[in-house]
Amino acid sequence: MSLPPTSVLIQVAIGGLLTGGVYALLVSGLTLIFGVMRVINIAHGAFLVLSAYLAYWLFTLLGMDPIVSIAVLAPLFFVFGVLVQRYLIARVRQEPGLLVLVTFALAITLEGVMGSLWRTTGRSVRTAYTGEVVPLALGDLTVRLPIVQLVGFAAAVIALGVLYLLLTRSDLGRAIRATIQNPDAAQLVGVNVALVRALTFGAALASVAAGGAVFSLIWTFNASSHEAWISKMLSIVVLGGMGSLPGALVGALIIGVAEAVAAVTITTYLSPIVSYLILFFILVFRPQGLLGSRIREA
């Protein structure tokens, strides 16, 4: 294992940061759901892939650019999320081990449905700008950035910005933050916690719908991709601290860069092990992650 030249490392690190920005969008809903209702939504990866499939579908059939399709997918997934929370999550005995199984069962149900509908062929959206790169001069070094990465990063930043405004400027956002802080106290001061939970689930799925559209531009996927992705997403939020949005952002950037660097220094095949090991050891030895509070249940 020899270290590649600095220029390659810089190129890789910038690519990793861009990827990390997209990761932040993918996991924002996951950490929000945990924060508000202490549910680890293992189906988040499956919803991501579902949204990517729908974006692919809209692109192939209607020629709609995935970024544009966010406008269709996000409201759709919002409704979907509210329904899932109301009629599934809220109906199960509130016991952490059981709730994880529910979201897990939901994940494999979605995987089965998607696998039957779209077979196992790997898909990805190939737009006119796929494969194009933009050169970026940094002193005497030129970094080549794929356009899809830049577009994905920009979309992620905008989507996260909307989410941030929602959380800080709206009544719902205040209610959500109050519920994260202390559900009992929130209820006492008049927050309709049941409604907040349903809307949070909706908002979280809307964010992952946006993530899925971006995802379809950058990565190849099939129905079973969600297994690897949910693991990666979990390692990001666990690293940042479950339930903490700033933590998710930090975790996403760290994992994005670490993975990219691992891919050129270890091997591409083994590079996912970095995130699995992070997930395993953080859960075991530092369950509060970098910025979150301890995963405390029951």
Partner: peptide, 12 residues
């Protein structure tokens, strides 16, 4: 680990 953290760790 307990609860969901244990479940996730087993998946990892």
């Amino acid at each position: 680990t307990t609860g969901s953290a244990f479940v996730i760790a087993t998946i990892a």
